[in-house]
């Protein structure tokens, strides 16, 4: 699971209103090379919840990869170093084993072999 996906996932339990962002617990993660595509990064940047992404990279122990505050969008055009870091955070870090935890209910959704399992129990639908 890439951190892009973490950024897009919310708790789906019925009645939960503050199910985002899911807290990331990473037991095992790997980095995989992904083709760098500046156009994609620029177009997806406005869709990203910055604090959730920063929280996720820190959960992996990468404390200095991203700035705490979202940069001005102009950095995407002028700051190549930032764009590379954003690329790495969003697409290259893969969580293999761990869990996603709902901030409201504490419900844990396991991540196994890189696949988050968001299936609900009968009483949660």
């Amino acid at each position: 699971m890439r951190l892009l996906t973490h950024n897009m996932l919310a708790c789906n339990i019925k009645g939960v209103t503050n199910g985002y962002p899911l807290r990331l617990e990473a037991e095992k993660w790997v980095e995989k090379e992904v083709n760098f595509n500046a156009d994609f990064l620029r177009s997806v940047f406005p869709k990203i919840e910055w604090p959730a992404l920063v929280g996720a990279v820190r959960a992996l122990g990468c404390h200095d990869l991203l700035p705490q505050d979202a940069p001005n969008p102009s950095a995407l055009d002028s700051d190549d170093d930032f764009l590379r870091r954003f690329h790495r955070a969003l697409l290259q870090l893969h969580v293999e084993e761990g869990a996603l935890v709902c901030p409201e209910t504490g419900r844990r959704f396991p991540i196994s072999k890189g696949i988050p399992n968001m299936l609900l129990h009968e009483d949660e639908v």
Binding site: M8, L9, A10, N12, M118
Partner: peptide, 17 residues
Amino acid sequence: HAEIICTDLASGLRKRL
């Protein structure tokens, strides 16, 4: 590569995507 999510249809993804 594709990001794979084990879920019912698009449950959990619908709001943000």
